[in-house]
Nucleic acid binder design. Structure first.
Lengths: 232, 232
DNA sequence: ATACCTTTGTGCTATAAAACATATTTGTCA
DNA sequence: TGACAAATATGTTTTATAGCACAAAGGTAT
């Protein structure tokens, strides 16, 4: 990708951070911004590695997950364009405690975290950007803990579907989730076995709360789904 | 408490933040620092409230928790002196998603978050302090999600005991946990019912991994406990 | 098109943990 | 000190969900 196009992509898509930086800072970012293409299911970074880059998802979908006991995977967070990730471990001076992978073919920019650190030192607004992001994520994690530990299967799956809707939205029909994922990933998102994800999905279909066509999921009764998510 | 004493307490105990601030900033903090005494089990702030103060635990023990389904409580985090809490929601521009309560009689300082915000704007090192804290907490939350969802009861309780040890340490005998908590709280920490916390504690005693005398818990075989925590 | 592998779907069984019931002990306050 | 409430302890029952087995459907590579 040639620089003029890159600059355009960055300035168009990175709006939030972009508006924070002055011209000199923008130049620094552009000169150090490397765009990567990831294939479906390709690992971006893995648990245990040292954080090196701030990743910026420009196109596609990314999951952050942790491999747990008995090969079971827990999906911790989903990312959509334009979101930043991969910086937490660096700021905590730790190695990654989770892994990131592309859910579908994705275009992701990488900026050296050392550069980000330098920019933060000089630009308090960038510091605030990360304080804000980290704070929101931490609140989300705390909510997730209660969701995953206290709700029953139906509640957890309903919650997962709501999260998918909130993360990626609907297609033009205003009801089909704009993400197609395997039943296994749905299970990993909602802390259950694949069989139970399939089963519970089937009962939601029978109850006319959703409709399913392969991996296309149509939310018919979002209100009911939220209700199940809340009390189930 | 008179100001000279207060100043002394602050400068002695708030070392980490204190060394970050210059003299003028220190003065501002001292002038706006209000010390509160909390009784055992007293609520410091509750879920849903608007964050107003940065709390600084000077003496005592504090738990952060979320009330979930069917009156069940999940303990999310434990605090020891000198730790800061109550700021996440403010930085996220949200209301509190969890509550904080004193585990035992506690002395806690309160600084208006607006002042903290102003200080951060002027002092990048304070910004870094919070970026670092938030990042570490977020990593901890992500770990906790897998611990609580994928481990069995024995593993979860073992994990909880390890957390207690890491948070509050041992007494002079190098084996008795320096915190006495109800079985119910132990259960709330490790996502199980009180009965099961009691039962599992009993089996640990029978297996000579711990010894129990009322609420005093003595870790006899920490190695084994870590092993159970890891694979259970 | 064929063969093969992966994903989806469904029924059955096993089991971990909750729910319930009921003592027993401990702590607290009049 | 006695009375009452709260916390701890333990046994039994119930249930949600994991685990397993197997069939059908869908993709993919040759």
């Amino acid at each position: 990708m040639i620089k003029s196009t890159l600059e355009q992509v960055i300035s168009e898509d990175l709006a939030e951070i972009w508006s924070i930086l002055d011209n000199e800072e923008k130049r620094l970012v552009i000169d150090n911004f490397i765009i990567h293409e990831f294939k479906k299911n390709q690992i971006i970074y893995a648990e245990g590695e040292s954080p090196e880059f701030l990743w910026c998802l420009l196109k596609g979908k990314v999951k952050k997950f942790k491999d747990g006991i008995g090969g079971r995977q827990q999906i911790l967070r989903l990312h959509r364009p334009v979101q930043y990730f991969g910086y937490r471990a660096y700021f905590a001076k730790e190695r990654y405690v989770s892994s990131a992978a592309a859910f579908e073919p994705s275009t992701i920019g990488a900026v050296p975290l050392k550069l980000v650190e330098d920019l933060i030192h000089k630009n308090i607004n960038l510091a605030w950007f990360f304080i804000h992001e980290l704070s929101r994520n931490l609140g989300g994690s705390d909510e997730k803990i209660v969701n995953l530990t206290q709700k029953h299967i139906r509640g957890r799956l309903a919650e997962a579907l709501i999260i998918l809707k909130d993360s990626y939205g609907y297609e033009d029909d205003e009801s089909t989730l704009r993400i197609y994922m395997a039943r296994e990933d749905l299970a990993n998102l909602s802390n259950m076995t694949t069989s139970n994800a399939i089963r519970t999905l089937t009962s939601f279909v029978n109850e006319k709360i959703i409709a399913v066509d392969g991996r296309r999921i149509k939310i018919i009764n979002e209100q009911m789904l939220r209700k199940i998510s809340k009390f189930g």
